[in-house]
Write a protein that binds this DNA or RNA. Structure first.
Lengths: 325, 325
DNA sequence: AGAACGAGGACAGGATCCGGCCTACATCGC
DNA sequence: GCGATGTAGGCCGGATCCTGTCCTCGTTCT
């Protein structure tokens, strides 16, 4: 990693890095690598333990040290490839809907890209371009890059400048104090105090263009609501277009539940079929997911979903018409 | 984070953690938090810089310190939620095919789970269960949990015990010295020295059951090949079922390339259409991806792909037949 | 112009760190 | 059971480094 190791703190950091490898290190080997006496290694290990890092030692002839799970996260020391892998994985996780950790994903990503060396940064962006295409049923997708910028601005309490495209298409320039990011389904909302309007506003992140952190720090401002998520929910619960789909699926309920973990309801009808209720903000996306189940199903509601499926079916059939068959 | 801060190395670690927050810290505030004089803080900052961590300072009245991108990855200090988010994201990235960083993903994941506190561990597994279902066109999927176990055993040089289900369905018990994990398409292979057979073997990870690290460490063994990936490629190039698909897509070549970054070839035919050649190990999966393009296309080869598409189209049409329309 | 902040030199006293030596204990292979 | 090899940790002397308190200087914002 780093060059010479004449410094105690540097050595401790390095030791932590070595111990993080999922292998076991004999003290003598550590001493050699860090160029200190074995006695010093023992003292360093003791120090790490005092600091709360759970260094486990296996006694005996083939013993050694290793870092095990403790009560707190130790600092992760990653090599280049691992850092890139994490950045790419996080970007994917932050963009798509995953459980309820979207916001934490974005925070972690912001933390990582802040310190990511530039030579790795362009590797990440290259890989990201190769990663996006899989899903995204339709509609505007949020750019994880923007998300991390917003997240960084929030925790840095920096004022933010961006262009905003309203629902009617009108463009406007905004200067805001960002307060919180709120994920909702496959959408993201930014809760911020709009310095131009002198009031709190909610912005859909996919409508934000060219966000730019001004670098100007502002004192924290109190949101007139208990929770940013609640604030967004109260304002937007009726505005988000959302469809309730109902379908009968000819597969065991548990199988369907495994593939639709966020379904509103999966009612078993009999051993081999069930009724599925799901809510998605994109019908195309929903149609695709039903088709991906790989089993027979019938759509009951809404009629638009049936329309989408018919279109998909027709397209698939057309695609084979000109073939050599 | 940690309690008292009377120790220099501990203070430096803590300082690094504070600086990692994407906000800016005035020296005075750091001095207060770490309970040392501002002069010492300045000295600590200087040390971090000597160690290679690029601490940036903004001069002037509202100045402060922050950690920026440098040439090496600093140790990442994550809070609980961020750690969980990374674990979940990595698991997803390791399971699906992402660029060429599958192996690094697994390594990073192994590193992380090794030190992940147990209270977070079960949160991760809960979230993982809700994450899997999206894609997986067909066929057996590799369990990322197994992958991390194998990766850990490899870097720890620990002997491994597992059950293996051969192609013909025969079950066998194996005791091996794991050497390397090789991702190939959406499959994973384990290159290992089989202690029972006294020879090198290649195992498909999705056929491995109940892997178990024995804890017995073995000296490294030399693979009779230059590279594990090459070794696998040489043995398996003809065994992996792989189809070359050819289709005409009515969309600009660049658009298609964006969604099929791993396509063998995308030849523009005219402004609005192109010829796509792609190789996938699952025709169902390929059919789905073509359909997800959201534009018209015609399949030329292979006939089986056309068959799959016809089946999909028929299923989609049937799904709408019983509806209220 | 003044305030707030980072950068850094000089210095003296004291804390810390290191290596070497010792003993005690656990584990594995023979 | 014995020896080899590993961790665990006490003690000590000497070298090193670290800290707080001065100080000055350059930068930036108000």
């Amino acid at each position: 990693m780093l060059t010479a190791m004449t410094d105690t703190p540097a050595r401790l950091l390095n030791l932590l890095s070595l111990l993080q490898t999922p292998r076991e290190w004999p003290g003598s080997e550590l001493a050699e690598r860090l160029e200190v006496s074995p006695r010093t290694i023992r003292r360093d290990i003791e120090r790490l333990r005092d600091l709360g890092y759970p260094v486990q030692a296996t006694m005996g002839a083939v013993g050694g040290y290793r870092l095990v799970a403790g009560t707190a996260m130790p600092p992760l020391l990653l090599d280049d490839e691992e850092a890139v892998a994490i950045a790419v994985g996080l970007r994917a996780a932050a963009g798509h809907a995953v459980g309820g950790i979207e916001e934490a994903s974005v925070r972690a990503l912001a933390k990582l890209v802040q310190v990511l060396p530039s030579r790795l940064r362009h590797r990440v962006s290259t890989l990201n371009e190769a990663t996006v295409p899989l899903l995204r049923g339709d509609g505007p997708t949020v750019d994880p890059e923007d998300l991390t910028l917003l997240a960084a601005a929030i925790s840095n309490r920096e004022r933010l400048r961006f262009g905003y495209r309203a629902v009617d298409g009108a463009e406007s320039k905004r200067l805001v104090e960002p307060h919180r990011l709120v994920p909702a389904g496959r959408r993201w909302y930014l809760v911020a105090y709009d310095n131009g309007r002198d009031d709190w506003r909610i912005f859909r992140v996919d409508r934000i263009t060219e966000p730019f952190a001004t670098g100007v720090r502002t004192p924290p401002r109190e949101l007139p609501a208990e929770d940013a998520a609640a604030y967004v929910a109260a304002k937007f619960s009726r505005l988000t277009p959302s469809f309730r789909a109902v379908a009968t699926v000819h597969a065991p309920a548990e199988e369907v539940l495994r593939r639709f973990p966020r379904a509103d309801e999966v009612l078993p009808l009999d051993e081999r079929s069930c009724r599925l209720q799901s809510r998605e903000d994109s019908l195309e996306w929903l149609a695709m997911r039903l088709l991906m189940l790989g089993c027979e199903f019938e759509v009951h509601e809404p009629p638009e979903l049936a329309g989408h499926l018919r279109a998909l079916g027709a397209r698939a059939t057309r695609a084979t018409a000109g073939g050599p068959g």
